[in-house]
């Protein structure tokens, strides 16, 4: 089952050279993953490489269609903590 890059991709190129299966290619508007080539990095790396470097939460879906980097996972601030974190930052 393949990972999938969706339209929130900002075309930063970071994932493309990391893919051990060379499954990532530049599509029209953003990067895409060739579902026939993607191995989920099984046998190559512990974590899927595209997911591990992608800077955009939600831009890559796992094989079950769920965001591989869900909201708050890359900022380090869980959604429910957002208001408190914002208040703390604005007090600086």
């Amino acid at each position: 089952m393949s990972y999938q890059i969706i339209e929130s991709c900002v075309t930063c190129h970071a994932c493309e050279p990391l893919c051990p299966a060379r499954a990532i290619y530049r599509a029209d508007r953003h990067f895409s993953i060739d579902a026939n080539k993607c191995t989920g990095c099984d046998g190559d790396y512990a974590d899927p490489q595209c997911v591990s470097i992608c800077p955009i939460e939600g831009a890559i879906l796992d094989p079950s269609g769920v965001a591989a980097n869900p909201p708050g996972s890359l900022t380090g601030i869980a959604p429910e903590r957002l208001p408190a974190a914002m208040a703390e930052i604005q007090a600086r």
């Binding site: 900002v10 075309t11 930063c12 190129h13 970071a14 493309e16 050279p17 470097i53 800077p55 955009i56 890359l74």
Partner: peptide, 15 residues
């Protein structure tokens, strides 16, 4: 050089 290997809180990767 588009790719980056870290995230800084002052940077937006949509460049």
């Amino acid at each position: 050089a588009p790719a980056c290997n870290i995230q800084c809180h002052y940077c937006n990767r949509k460049y």
